[in-house]
């Protein structure tokens, strides 16, 4: 934890190959190769450019918000920063312990009890055995499962599952915190509590990258904003400036009228 946290993204592009139908089948590929069609097949392979030439440098103290419409590449960029998608073009350097809050139910198993799920999460994070009791206590406290802790998650109410998932995901304190917007969903009373815990985690992190549709959340939590559109960076700069431009460009959503 001595070295300063750093994220350095140089000219990174991510291309998704779209495998469909015959390109998923070895048999058809072999037949195509035998009949001399493979080369043509490869050129016609459909790829989706999820991110194009992204350049980004974040150091300790940076609080970056990602804005953009659905499919702009916000989540893909978070996955790249987390080292999940390795760049197809360009270069990525990340230094510092990292926690990516992407999937609320990561590694959670409905058949296991709450306690077993907590221990499993500890193992997923490669925590030493000595850290497990503390993890268990912290998560159990926050999720308020009391007697349900030793019952299978399958019988939990939806709210309890959300609380457990949230408590698990936020139990690990990282230097670099990557967060997707789902994290701020939940019922109102829980939200208040969750917000406090998140804010504490955000304050403790050296670098925050937050993806959200909510301009308000980014305005209050982030000092810098990155506007993505169709995998390209449209704007990158102080949060206020970028968000104003972003809001200016987004047409006012017409209010749905029930016929």
């Amino acid at each position: 934890m001595t070295a300063n946290a750093l994220i350095h993204v140089e000219d990174v592009s991510v291309l998704f190959p779209l495998y469909h139908g015959s390109s998923r089948s070895l048999k058809k590929m072999v037949v195509a190769a035998a009949s001399g069609r493979l080369a043509q097949d490869q050129q016609q392979r459909v790829v989706v450019r999820a991110l194009s030439n992204i350049n980004l440098r974040l150091e300790s103290g940076d609080r970056l918000g990602l804005v953009g419409s659905n499919g702009a590449g916000k989540t893909t960029l978070l996955r790249v920063l987390a080292g999940i998608y390795e760049p197809v073009l360009g270069r990525l350097r990340v230094r510092g312990s990292l926690n990516a809050l992407l999937d609320p139910n990561l590694g959670m198993n409905m058949e296991l009890t709450g306690r077993e799920n907590i221990l499993l999460r500890g193992l997923y994070n490669g925590l030493p055995r000595s850290a497990l009791p503390r993890l268990e206590e912290d998560v159990a406290d926050f999720a308020e499962l009391s007697d349900f802790l030793d019952l299978p998650v399958r019988i939990y109410s939806a709210g309890m599952v959300v609380r457990l998932g949230f408590a698990l995901a936020t139990a690990i304190k990282p230097q670099i915190l990557l967060m997707d917007e789902w994290f701020l969903a939940g019922d109102a009373t829980f939200l208040e509590k969750a917000r406090n815990r998140l804010e504490e985690m955000v304050r403790g992190a050296d670098i925050l990258v937050l993806s959200s549709h909510s301009v308000e959340i980014i305005r209050s939590w982030c000092s810098r904003a990155l506007w993505l559109d169709q995998g390209h960076i449209v704007a990158d700069g102080p949060a206020g400036e970028v968000l104003d431009r972003y809001l200016g460009s987004v047409p006012v959503q017409p209010v749905a009228v029930l016929a």
Partner: peptide
């Protein structure tokens, strides 16, 4: 929040 994530370098 007490548990610290393991350090990593990518």
């Amino acid at each position: 929040v007490t548990t610290i994530a393991p350090a990593m370098e990518l």
